[in-house]
Each structure stands twice: as structure tokens, then as C-alpha cells.
Amino acid sequence: MSTNTSTAVAETPQRRRRRGNSFTAKDRAVIGGLVGFPTALHILLVWIPAILTITLSFCEWDGIGGIADIKWVGFRNYTQIFTLYADFGPALRNNILWLLALALVATPLGVILAYFIDKELKGTKFYQTAFYLPMVLSLAVTGIVWDYIFRNNGFVNAMLGADHPGHTISWFGDPHKNIWVVLGIASWRHIGYIMLLYLAGLKSVDPSLREAAAIDGAKEFATFRKVIFPSLRPVNVIIIVVTVIESLRAFDLVYVINRGKNGLQVLAVAVYENILGESARIGWGAALATILFVLCIGPIMLYLYQTFKADK
């Protein structure tokens, strides 16, 4: 956008001068207010807290005393988390599993379903609605809805004949099983989201691209891989970013199911536990949050690069 304005302005110098002169003191104040107030709010409540958290991750603070009680301890919180904090290993492992499940199973499935739906077969509207629905449900409701399927006397156990007391399969209680069930539920939601984003991308593909490939006699899969997929680079980047960020942010679902314990530890819950939980240690919580942030930096930079490279 600013590329457009600046070139337009450069072509017509008189207009630039006139516009430049037409800023009255009042106009300038209005522009300052229009930009200044929202920016101040955003920076004050998002960026400054983010910087403070990163700083706190190198400090020790009991949180009860004043700010004067904050002591600089260097990397001690980090070394303690790696060596002493028992939930860190499982939490990190689960976040990585989450990422792998969404990236290797849910996201490709969403893309494939979008591709099928783009063919506009009979009943397309119905299919779209079915896949979009989980997305409008909150994760809190999602947890409850799936509980009816996987609870001890729920649908799955009844189908397996395992719903009698003493013979039940504990899908949410067994720490070896529950993470897989949760990943399935997360995928249920993620697939529709990816499908929606990808479908919008597919609709924007120039039809002549496909026709040209078809005339060349390219097979359907080859057309997708060599022509359509590369032309959707912006959507592909967004899908990667959404997938990584969603898997790192995972909180609501495990919190609703069992407060993120017993096999369902994730980093976001670990942060929460160290700030508001019984074993509160602010330094550890801040360090965990910073680790989460470091893992997010890559996709955030990728997204910014993709989005703003044209404007530079």
C-alpha cells in the first residue's frame, strides 16, 4: 500500500506539495490521535508485558514483595527448568507431538479435503458446513462434546463392549492413551480451519493455469504439485504459521479435560501453573513463557517476511 502511495506521489509532485501543505495543525493532531491511541494501548498491554516477561525470566521474584525484591539470577531459571522441573520434559514432548500431528496429518488432510471440495461435487455445501462446524465451537465446548464419546461409559467404550464397571478403557485417564485422543480432537478442529483457508486459496487460482496444464496432458496430481501448489505460496505460508502457532498455544483443550496433568502436560499450562498454581514460581513461569516465545519466533518472522516483502 505504501508502495502505491509513494509512487503515485512521486509521479505528481504538485499534488504532494499541496497535500503536504494541507495538513493543518488540527489535522496533524487528528492523525497523531488516530494512530497514537490504538498503538499506545497495543504496546502497553502486549509488547511491554512481553518484554517484561522475558526480563523476568532472568530474575527471581516471589511475587509478594515489591519490585525492589526482584533479583537478577542470569540463566538459573532455565537450567532449573531443564534439570529440576519434572513437567517440562513431558510438556515439551507433547507440544512437539502436537505440532507433528497437526503438521503431518491434520494439515495435509485439510488440504486434500479442500482440493476435493473445490471440485464442486454434489453436496459441496453440506460437506463444507460439516467441516467448518468444529471451528465455531470453543475449545472448552469441544472438550465436553468429545467427553461424551470417550468417557468411561461413552460411545466408543460401548461400541467396544468395554463400558462395564471394572472393564472400561480409560481414554482420558491413561497417560499413554490420552495425548493421542486429544491430538485426534485437536485435528478434528484444525482440519476444517486449514480446509477453509486452502479452499479460499484454490478459488483464487487463475483457471487458465489449470487449463494450460490440462492441455499439456499433465496428470491431475502433477498439475496440483507443479502448478497449483507453487502458485499458492502465500496461503501455504499462512497454513504453516497457523499450524505451528496453534500447536504451541495449546491450552484450553487439555485444561478442560484434566487441567493439563497426567500425560496431558503442555508448555502453556506449565506457564499457568507456575504463576497461578499451587507451586507458583514466577521466574520459572516467565522462563517457560519465553521458551514458548522463542519457539514462535521462526513462524512469526516467516509470516512477516511473506506479508511485507512486497511493501519494501
Partner: peptide, 19 residues
Amino acid sequence: MIFTAGNLLPPQLIFIPIF
């Protein structure tokens, strides 16, 4: 960029000072 990136930050990163 500040606005776009700010939206992508994990909420856990900002919640300690906010609290």
C-alpha cells in the same frame, strides 16, 4: 509489523505482567 506480530505472540508471554 508491530500490530501483526503482536497478535501472533503467545498469550502466556504477556499474561504474567498483565496479571
